[in-house]
Amino acid sequence: MNNFVRAGRTAQARVRTANVGASAFDAANAIFLIVLAIVTLYPLWYVMVGSLLPYDEAIRSSFNLYPKKVTLDAYRFVFGSKFIMNGFLIAIVVTIGAVVYQLLITSAAAYSLTKRDLPLRNAIFLFFILTMFASGGLIPTYLLIKSLNLMNNLLVMIIPSGISVFNLIVMKTFIQSLPKELEESALIDGAGYAKIWLRVILPLSGPVLATVGLFVAVGQWNNWMTPMMYLQDKSLWPLAMVLRDILVEDNKFLLNATVQVERMTLDKTIKNAVIIVSIVPIMLVYPFIQKHFAKGVMIGAIKS
């Protein structure tokens, strides 16, 4: 009896220490995650504060938890710059162009590849898949683009990357999972494959079109490599390349003789503003992106 009680007590004590241990772990875990969130966000906050400070405040101290004085001078300069605004416009055009073009040809090809009885289907699929393992590389691609007269042509942003095999697989997987009945009844009604694709498959593909469309859109919005290689004409540069020129190449377009000295001194705060301007569009679509991208990652992962 005595032993039994004692055993009961130690068990209770053990549960109690376990609880204390568990809540200590919970607290430590929560603190760690909060610190991680701060480490993630603070650099962005720091840059934003820097973009809002008047120049004399900005040089006085580089450690400001919040802007003690606020001015929009830097943003006025950014939005007043033809170079940057032109980049915005071009980025919007090529992003929309690339999304529409890629979704159409990817979806059409993906739908065709779901037809198991299509002659040569496996060979065609292999033809696509092989390019995931081998490529011509940088220079041969560069020489090809040059010989196709795509240099200094905005189509170079859209046509060569017109299809990604990864996205093709994601879409094919999705279309395969659609119920067959709708398609079959359309076939019986005498509709051809093109009509079925347009009238039945595309309207049902909303989720996958959103996922892949967002993949393409973010990739294109951030694409500086293609313009750097193929667009020498600065008036064709999309925003990402303009940003690279300002942030990485440290282009002293601010230091042009024609620009007043006052703007030179804005250099530091302007860079901060440019960073914020490049992030804001992504922040705006972020809620949608997060949902759809996560889904895309999963489809891709399951497939591979």
Binding site: T131, A134, S135, G136, G137, T141, L144, I159, S161, G162
Partner: peptide
């Protein structure tokens, strides 16, 4: 854009 560059 994938196979022709391989020739290159």
């Amino acid at each position: 854009f994938s196979y022709v560059p391989m020739y290159g």
